[in-house]
């Protein structure tokens, strides 16, 4: 009987094939077009200045040639509801934010990017000037609290 002869081979194959998901398996299935986005900002920003803040779009390591629709939302601290919407100015494939940070503190810059049916919306948090002692203390306190609660497990479907 053929089946009997090959059964140890098949069984070994089956057991060996066990448990190893192929990281390349996704190549066999539907893929989405990918555009990468980064927000570049200077290492230090002073209040009442207009620093150079850019959004760069790339695809497969190359600057994206296609023009995207980009606008920024800028807000301070938790005041997201009052965010200012500022359209980006395009120059040499780079999208600039022209904004004057009025005072020291923690700001958020959200770039809203649309190319075809791709919609990206990274938010970067930046520090302008010096933080007050109060702000620093609050940060440390919240970090400590977050650390404790995040010691939990990893969620998996």
């Amino acid at each position: 009987m053929r089946v009997v002869k090959f059964s140890p081979l098949l069984l070994t194959f089956f057991l060996l094939a066990a448990c190893s998901a192929d990281p390349e398996a996704a190549d066999h299935y539907a893929k989405r077009e990918e555009v990468n986005v980064i927000i570049e900002a200077p290492a230090s920003i002073e209040a009442d200045s207009a620093p150079q803040i850019d959004v760069k779009l790339t695809q497969d390591g190359q600057v994206l040639e296609q023009e995207a629709s980009v606008h920024f939302l800028v807000w301070k601290d938790d005041n997201k509801a009052d965010a200012e919407s500022i359209p980006a100015s395009l120059e040499d494939g780079t999208y600039h934010l022209e904004y004057n940070f009025p005072s020291d503190g923690v700001y958020f810059i959200k770039a809203d990017v649309k190319v075809d049916n791709i919609h990206l919306m990274p938010t970067k948090q930046i520090r302008v000037g010096e933080l007050t002692e109060e702000e620093k203390e609050k940060i440390l306190e919240e970090q400590e609290q977050k650390k404790q609660e995040n010691s939990g497990g990893h969620h998996h479907h």
Binding site: I39, A41, A43, P122, Q125, I126, R127, I139
Partner: peptide, 11 residues
Amino acid sequence: LPVPVSTNQQY
């Protein structure tokens, strides 16, 4: 959280 004291900016 607001910017950690050690760094200037993050996503």
